[in-house]
Simulated scan of single mutants.
Amino acid sequence: MNQILEKIKAYDTILIHRHKNPDPDALGSQAGLRAILRANFPDKKIYAVGFDEPTLTFLTQMDQVTLAENEKHLSIVCDTANRPRIDDDRWQTADCLIKIDHHPNDDAYGDLLLVEDFRSSASEIIADFALQNELVITDEAARLLYAGIVGDTGRFLYPATSAKTLYIASKLAAYDFDRSSLGREMSSFDMKVARLQGYIYENLQVSDNGAARIVLTQALLNQFDLTDAETSKIVGVPGNIRTIESWAIFVEQKDGHYRVRMRSKTRPINEIAKLHDGGGHPLASGANSFSLEENEQIWQQLQDNLK
């Protein structure tokens, strides 16, 4: 942490990145760090870069910035396990690259790495970084980091929620932001998502040993008027059923391949994800499938994993 702080002090221009298709932790850690650094280093040019996900603009929005030719900059990448998932390619031209993450460190990129896979979220790491270094945390930074922790812990439900997680969350909760309003916004969804939930409960395929899957085709997404990003709201739905242990949601993309969201209550599934152009946490991973045959392979592996 001290080395990272020294690097931050050494650069006048800092780009903060996160992964593509962001979730609340990706945005919370990225924009939370931006708010902290801007408050503590007002003379520096500090930007959060990447695509603005329309469903999450209530949390924050990205900076639209053009760097001068050959302008030296520091890139900090938050909550991103591997290089292909980094949003905004300017990390490749950075004078120095820092990785801050809580996923398994299978792709150890960067000049400095702060990777703690026992943490609940990247937002927890950023908050702890600020607290340990006695940096000013603004109300907005606290809101963003709290949202990231809440998002990646499933409201403090998931196993990575530790006593340290709750301690840091309590520190952030002491700042002046509306936690109730934030929680409602994070858990609310449109009627079309509610209808998709109903479809999933009606059509979920469940094996005898507790594996489950659902396939969401482009035709179905068009029928419900949903984007791929909006389907993230239903990732946890199969897990509400008591007898289901592990599940996969196959979402067909416009180019025909399938984005596979995988979750498990107790049995690790990240090794399955790694076999299919993916990875992630032991109990929460993502993969990609490029054919119906590969869909079936993943489904069989999910079932076999529970034997």
Rank of each mutant, 00 (worst) to 15 (best):
L145S: 03
N209E: 07
V150C: 12
Y158A: 01
E140Q: 13
Y158W: 11
T217R: 05
F118E: 08
I126E: 07
S181G: 09
D178C: 05
D117Y: 09
S188H: 07
L166Q: 04
G210H: 02
A142V: 02
D176E: 15
L166K: 00
F118P: 11
E202R: 12
L204W: 15
D128W: 09
R184Y: 12
N133L: 02
A163Y: 09
T138M: 06
L221D: 01
R179D: 11
A194N: 14
I137Q: 03
V150H: 01
A212E: 14
F177E: 00
P159V: 00
V115N: 02
T138Q: 05
Q218F: 04
K164T: 15
L221T: 11
A163Q: 10
A194C: 13
S180W: 06
A160F: 15
S180M: 07
S170Y: 05
K192F: 04
Q132G: 10
A130E: 06
D176V: 06
T217E: 06
Q132T: 12
D190R: 13
A174N: 14
G198W: 12
P159D: 03
R213W: 14
L114Y: 10
G210K: 04
L220H: 13
L172E: 04
D178K: 01
L216I: 15
A163K: 10
S181C: 12
M186G: 01
S207W: 04
E185I: 09
G154L: 01
T217K: 06
F156R: 03
F129S: 01
L144W: 08
R119P: 05
N203W: 14
V215G: 10
